[in-house]
Design a protein around this nucleic acid. Structure first.
Lengths: 143, 143
DNA sequence: CATCTAATTTGTAATGATTATCATCTAGGA
DNA sequence: TCCTAGATGATAATCATTACAAATTAGATG
């Protein structure tokens, strides 16, 4: 038996979600590719195995997966939503040229200096989006 | 004469943009309201004075204003783009309940711990988006 | 001050991402 | 095995944004 497949089934069950072939495939795709996929990419990725799967199903499924915390929805710039397997809190580097995305981590949370009118704001989560030029693009344009 | 109006005209000229009544009105609106406006809000805001202004003009103008650096485009969550007069680098607190937006500042940039594959990434800018509950919503639901 | 031209405005159509709808189908419990 | 709440899939609807083209205008030039 495919241990990976067993794994995603277990993940779905444990999260209290119904196990359907479509959900297995989508979660498996996210597990395999490891992060930052858009709905379109997921849709294309599962096409070979599920040629009949609807985009609606992808939207629906990622919404559910995000609700139970198996994945996280991230918004980068003005692009479409991306869905990230990585549940450990992390942040993103985006290349302005090619749009490639890297994860990175911040050991100690930065000290936020809140303005007076926001005193008492209850911080629940934060996300840092770093813009710049990735090594590959620097190499490409630098020479 | 309206000193405010003279001001936005000067800003446009200095930025090398043609001065049109529409641009004056849009920039004036942004100066007056002071930040975070969406295209829709700008459009509504200038309606009283410019009932004939097209949404296209708003999109066009904010794009130009952002290009010359008079304003900054920000993306918060999955909502529409917002345009911010505040050019000083700053970050945002978003309330999960009511969506209100606060600015805040970070004195010393956090130390980013880049992964191996991103070594050499040239950081140009960064933006921190903090999610949580604003004081007003806490007060409203807390009691 | 009249003229000219390139930039701007405007209305509309087109696109892209996402949500809504609803009839059909199915996972999984009784 | 049967039932039903929930899931799927096809399509339409919505929302933000961009593309387009014809009419207008800012501002430079003579």
């Amino acid at each position: 038996m495919d241990p990976g497949k067993l794994n995603v089934v277990a993940m779905l069950k444990q999260a209290g979600l119904r196990v359907t072939p479509q959900r297995e495939a989508i979660l498996q795709y996210l597990v395999d590719t490891g992060g930052h996929a858009t709905v379109e990419e997921i849709y294309q990725g599962v096409q070979p195995c599920f040629p009949h799967m609807s985009v609606s199903t992808v939207y629906n499924t990622v919404k559910h997966l995000a609700q139970v915390g198996l994945i996280k929805e991230i918004h980068v710039g003005d692009g479409p939503s991306r869905f990230d397997m990585n549940v450990r809190p992390h942040h993103h580097l985006i290349c302005r040229k090619c749009g490639i995305l890297f994860d990175f981590y911040i050991d100690e949370p930065p000290r936020f200096h809140l303005p007076p009118e926001a005193q008492g704001f209850q911080i629940e989560d934060y996300h840092v989006e770093v813009q710049g030029i990735c090594p590959a693009c620097r190499a490409a344009s630098g020479e």
